[in-house]
Design a protein around this nucleic acid. Structure first.
Length: 812
DNA sequence: AGCACGCCGACT
DNA sequence: GTCGGCGTGCTC
């Protein structure tokens, strides 16, 4: 026996109910001393249970007095890599999440499903007390016939009897349990291969009258091998009958076989594969690649220029045998980026969003663990993917809210990706058109470098000339600001100003197109009784009900409660009801009446996706001239290109008592502006606002991000807000108003005593205060804000019923 | 999963 | 005062 071998192991136990980032310590039995390594999967005793766990560290001593023996090593090769383990612990501490939740992110998908137990009778004799009949049956069976799997026991003895009796026998030491890790073998699925056209015939002739079949056949030809049927049909916009038609004509063969659906086929090609990045940008970026520096580089530019730079940056990294990780804000962007990259780098590119079935996801995880993938593209979860040789981390559209996980752990990708890059000692690229305030601040204090990916001057400038800032010089690319408190409105609901109306008329006469943005769905924001001033409110939330004419309902935009549009006031029974404010329905109606010969389509989540998709296509070829929509517009990306952009009410959101609201509004509006105008100064932007002096509106007017940034930083500096100091939002909701408030106050007192007791900590606590929307889904919401470098140290104090949001993107 | 602990209402 | 039902926290 090796005398220096570690005697104790620190373990993350995979129990759902362990609070905080707590680990447990076990003594290592002699037989395992030489075999145990960090990252390995083990079984440990935990109360009365035997649970899987992951070894995080080995040591000669234990911080805990009494330790129990580790039961078993399940899997010899480390299941979790050292860097992923370090990342998991860091994230758990920062976001106040149980380590178990991080294990689910870094480990194989559905680990528990792949653990298979075997049972055997031990040679220990005679039970301490008399066994139950069912237990005796299990014991007799195991003694007579040897080892049984859990499944075998269940089929012989019935499900519940087997599980219960066996568990009891294991606890008494009469039966031993041994756990094996077995991943499912990838299952076969329907794959299609294109067959060549018989000699002397042309596919164009053969499939002249079947365009869907032809599109499908051409897609299959490009695949250069068997392709999953479902994927081929989706990409060719074809359906089952088209495939059957091809098979009947002898142009395709269907067979059952395994294919890794997440491997991206680069042969689909693209028109501008040869594009090279801007020379100055490339020089600046190139210095950070290939070494062991973990620089943060902010790549600013429009989509095409950013992606060109990504492809160029990946090539030298891959040639050194290292991997690239690309995180996109949503699945469709990820798929797009993956296709783009696969067509431009001759490397193995995987798109995690295409691994949809459990078997595909396990297969991708194993493939990554084995180091078989060069470039991994996906959404936020892949930050924790089991890559082994990361040489470059890219976060595309770093300002997008899609990078924030909406359930615990509420991690934020740009922050975790930075840590990941540090752990792998590789550069981090944050791609953006308009950076977050935190990102631009990092540039200013020298923690990140700015790389302008664009050769041409664009509308959104990060640096500006002082003449323009002082208003001395105006540029043709400036937005036109309309003060709706003074400017006359035309048409219904007072939603459209004369300036916007004239702009629309002018551009439509010239056969142009327009996009109008309204940041609220429905007809009217509030319904009020003119007689008694009763406001129609949600029965479960402290918020007004929004009228939706299309469905004839009044709807709560917090909890989606719905009721019939009222005719009378329930309090005074008067029938003089007034609608207050307007939403996308009202604006679409107003524009239709103002411009009767114009085709107007509404884009918001009240309409079915396929109908909107058709409308956006029609907009693309001119059959629809005006799109009126909410944030839902943004998901149509470049298809929004227009000659006029109208922001109908820019102020919505700015009045929230939330220091992050201005940034949120500006980033949304700038993105919309970039998408609709494509950065062309000839396109007009009309902004209707009640607060023309607000720094968000001013920034929008002159396209000066810098001025917005300076004002914003000044305000945040006064309050010690992010990015100057970390901030954590803790929320508590309860159906009882008093219970909610009492718990919030109790937590505050506990925080105060703990913070005062120990070594001096940099934590300031604000609150408790009722949330901006006090009642949500019948729950009264209270909030505490923790500020300071040590704020995360207080997170383990919160439990049961509290929601923690570190690095929040909103304070509502 | 199974046990200890503490809170609260019902009873002596 | 005391008993016990039940909800909550803990298990290295």
């Amino acid at each position: 026996m090796n005398a220096t071998a570690p005697a104790f192991a620190e373990v993350i136990v995979a129990a759902g109910d362990v609070r905080g980032d707590q680990t447990f310590h076990y003594s290592v039995p002699d037989r395992l001393r030489d075999k145990l390594r960090p990252g390995q999967l083990v079984m440990v005793p935990f109360g009365a249970r035997q649970l899987p766990g992951v070894v995080t560290a080995l040591a000669a001593s234990s911080p805990v007095e009494e330790t129990r023996d580790l039961l078993q090593l399940v899997w010899e090769p480390p299941l979790i890599g050292a860097r992923q383990l370090a990342l998991a612990r860091w994230v758990a501490a920062r976001y106040g999440a149980p380590l178990r939740a991080l294990l689910d992110l870094v480990g194989p998908p559905r680990l528990a499903n792949h653990l298979h137990a075997e049972f055997a009778a031990t040679n220990r004799s005679g039970p301490a007390k008399k066994l139950a009949a069912s237990e005796q049956r299990v014991l007799d069976l195991l003694r007579a016939r040897g080892v049984h799997s859990q499944a075998a026991l269940r089929s012989r003895l019935g499900k519940t009897a087997a599980t219960r009796s066996v568990a009891r026998l294991v606890r008494q030491g009469l039966v031993a349990r041994h756990v094996n890790l077995r991943f499912p073998e990838p299952a076969a699925e329907r794959c299609v291969t294109a067959l060549p056209v018989p000699d002397g015939q042309c596919p164009a002739d053969l499939l002249r009258r079947a365009p869907r079949q032809r599109a499908l056949w051409e897609r299959l030809r490009r695949a250069d091998g068997p392709m999953p049927a479902a994927l081929a049909l989706r990409e060719a916009s074809a359906s089952g009958p088209s495939l059957q038609g091809l098979v009947a004509r002898g142009l395709a063969r269907v067979e059952k076989r395994w294919s890794a659906s997440y491997i991206v086929d680069g042969s689909a090609g693209a028109a501008d594969v040869g594009a090279t990045p801007d020379a100055a940008a490339w020089t600046k970026l190139g210095r950070s690649l290939g070494g062991s520096t973990h620089d943060t580089l902010v790549v600013q530019g429009v989509e095409f220029e950013r992606r060109t730079l990504y492809a160029a940056a990946i090539r030298p990294v891959a040639s050194e045998g290292r991997q690239a990780l690309v995180v996109a804000p949503d699945a469709s962007t990820a798929a797009d980026v993956a296709d783009w990259l696969a067509a431009r780098v001759s490397l193995t590119v995987a798109d995690a969003t295409r691994a949809r079935t459990p078997a595909q996801r396990v297969s991708l995880w194993r493939s990554l663990r084995a180091g078989e993938i060069d470039v991994l593209v996906g959404t936020r979860d892949i930050t924790f993917a089991p890559l082994t040789r990361v040489g470059l981390v890219i976060v595309d559209r770093e300002e997008d809210a899609g990078h924030k996980n909406r359930v615990a752990p509420r991690f934020h990708v740009p922050i975790c990706a930075k840590r990941l890059a540090e752990l792998f000692r590789c550069p981090l690229l944050l791609g953006t058109e308009t950076p977050r305030v935190a990102t631009f601040h990092a540039i200013e204090i020298g923690q990140a470098r700015l790389v302008m990916a664009e050769p041409r001057m664009r509308l959104t400038r990060l640096h500006d000339d002082p003449d323009r800032l002082s208003g001395v010089r105006r540029s043709s690319g400036d937005a036109e600001i309309v003060d709706t408190r003074r400017a006359p409105a035309v048409g219904r609901y007072g939603a459209v100003s004369r300036v916007l109306y004239e702009a629309l008329r002018e551009i439509l006469a010239a056969e142009g197109r327009a996009v109008l943005y309204v940041n609220r769905r429905g007809m009217a924001a509030l319904t009020i009784c003119r007689t008694c001033a009763h406001v129609f409110e949600c029965p479960r939330c402290s918020t007004g009900l929004v009228q939706h004419r299309q469905s004839g309902q009044i709807v709560c935009h917090i909890c989606n409660w719905r009721g019939r549009v009222p005719r009378r006031c329930p309090v005074c029974e008067g029938n003089r009801l007034r609608l207050w404010g307007y939403g996308s329905e009202a604006v679409a109606e107003a524009v239709t009446h103002l411009l009767p010969r114009t085709a107007v389509a509404r884009i918001d989540s009240d309409r079915p996706a396929h109908a909107m998709d058709a409308d956006v296509s029609a907009f693309g070829h001119g059959a629809v001239q005006v799109l009126v929509g909410t944030q839902r517009l943004l998901s149509y990306g470049n298809r929004l290109r227009a000659d006029v952009l109208g922001i109908v009410q820019a102020d919505i959101g700015l009045q929230f008592p939330d220091f992050l609201a201005p940034e949120r509004v500006l980033l949304t509006l700038l993105r919309l502006r970039n998408l609709t105008t494509g950065g062309e100064a000839s396109a007009r932007t009309v902004v209707q606002t009640m607060t023309p002096r607000h720094h968000v509106i001013q920034a929008l007017q002159t396209n000066s991000y810098l001025r917005f940034f300076r004002t914003e930083m000044e305000q945040r500096r006064n309050e010690g807000l992010p990015p100057l100091r970390p901030l954590i939002k803790a929320s508590f909701g309860h159906a009882s108003e008093t219970r909610a408030e009492e718990e919030a106050r109790r937590a505050r007192r506990e925080l105060d005593t703990v913070v005062a007791a120990g070594a001096p900590l940099d934590i300031d606590v604000l609150g408790p205060a009722p949330a901006f929307i006090y009642r949500q889904r019948g729950q009264y919401q209270w909030q505490l804000l923790l500020q300071g470098e040590d704020a995360e140290k207080a997170l383990p104090l919160f439990h049961g019923g509290w929601t923690l949001d570190a690095d929040p993107l909103d304070l509502t």
